[in-house]
């Protein structure tokens, strides 16, 4: 149990959602989800907003669930099949989008951890943090908090799924890192707790899923990618390559966001969350790339392309997520979706 609050299942955003979400509102025993129809829609290339809402909801049945969804759906065979089919679709898209970055890293010389750092430092990519530091408004910062809540209110949970799939030095290093993420024995330093306090201090809801209806596919693909990589044993090395990039792209931007929060006069809790990540993630990036990814590469050289795949996947997914925010702001509009019923949303 993780508290009494559970969101209600959101409305579908397209044909995929129409096939899956209404079915979840009936008891699982009443019948399976229409897997063949889902396969057809997935094969036709579903819209990202539609696809990633469905995938996020299916995963959330493993976490908190929804107030109006029968818990038995979690392991209902047709739900598992639909998740697997959509996860395969996302993985195939990610492999296509990352092929060039992976080839470059494989062709480079040097130890695997150094090549992972080089991939990150050579990428560039959209920087929401730089924009908010210099030009952003308080309202745009709150939008960022809402977008990132899809992951940050459950920070590190997808990576914790990988712990039992590692052994030896890599497992020891991941446990050490997760201990820090979960507050190192102090609930007051629990990272997702710090994030919840930052949201609450800004007058936002810190309940997981409350803003689901406002989050575009480019935002939901961020946690969905972690779930797709973290929940499948064969993708454990990719999950750790991904985690390394996530940490290695956090310290610098967190410093900028802490300063932006100060400049914009946001509550102290927002500064505290980002300030904590400047130091924490300067440690964590070394732990993931050197102690986890380095150990995996030494133990099983065949997993090196997968480490690079996961790393590149994080870069492209985060870049697209950031670009979507910057495009909306440059056009003078909100980066959140308008669901026509924004009663829960204070932004």
């Amino acid at each position: 149990m993780s508290g009494p609050h559970r969101p209600r299942l959101p409305a579908p955003r397209g044909p995929l959602g129409e096939l899956v979400l209404p079915g979840l509102l009936s008891p699982a025993a009443e019948g399976p989800l229409p897997i063949d129809n889902v396969r057809d829609v997935a094969a036709a290339g579903p819209d990202a907003d539609d696809l990633h809402l469905v995938l996020w909801c299916l995963h959330h049945l493993h976490v908190d669930g929804f107030a109006d969804v029968d818990p038995a759906w979690e392991w209902a065979p047709s739900r598992v099949a639909v998740w697997g089919l959509l996860a395969d679709h996302v993985e195939a898209e990610l492999r296509l989008a990352t092929a060039e970055l992976v080839e470059e890293a494989l062709a480079a010389d040097g130890p695997v951890p150094d090549r992972l750092f080089a991939m990150v430092d050579g990428f560039g990519g959209a920087s929401v943090a730089s924009y908010l530091r210099k030009d952003g408004t308080a309202e745009q910062f709150l939008e960022l908090l809402v977008h990132r809540s899809a992951y940050n209110l459950r920070e590190s949970d997808p990576q914790a799924l990988v712990l039992p799939r590692l052994t030896g030095a890599a497992q020891s290093a991941l446990a050490e890192l997760l201990y820090d993420e979960y507050g190192a024995g102090d609930p007051g330093r629990h990272h997702s707790g710090l994030y919840a306090r930052a949201m609450t201090a800004c007058g936002l809801s810190a309940a997981v899923g409350d803003y689901l209806r406002r989050l575009p596919g480019t935002t939901l693909v961020v946690p969905n990618t972690m779930h797709v990589l973290g929940l499948q044993r064969r993708l454990a090395p990719a999950a750790m390559g991904h985690f390394g990039v996530f940490e290695a792209t956090s310290s610098g931007p967190s410093r900028l966001l802490a300063r932006a929060a100060e400049r914009l006069g946001l509550p102290r809790e927002v500064f505290d969350y980002y300030d904590e990540h400047v130091e924490a993630d300067a440690v964590h990036e070394q732990l993931v790339f050197r102690s986890i990814c380095g150990s995996l590469a030494d133990t099983d050289p065949a997993c090196v392309p997968e480490l690079f795949f996961g790393a590149a996947a994080c870069l492209v997914v985060e870049d697209a997520a950031g670009r979507a925010l910057l495009h909306a702001w440059e056009a003078g509009r909100s980066s959140l979706l308008d669901d026509g019923d924004n009663e829960q949303v204070a932004v």
Binding site: F117, Y179, D180, A184, E279, A282, V283
Partner: peptide
């Protein structure tokens, strides 16, 4: 924290801790 990173490049803005600036 269970592990800390000590700056070795002398450019960190929160000495003695590393803040990733070496990159």
């Amino acid at each position: 924290r269970p592990v800390v990173a000590i700056c070795r490049c002398d450019t960190s803005q929160r000495m003695p801790w590393c803040d990733g600036t070496h990159r």
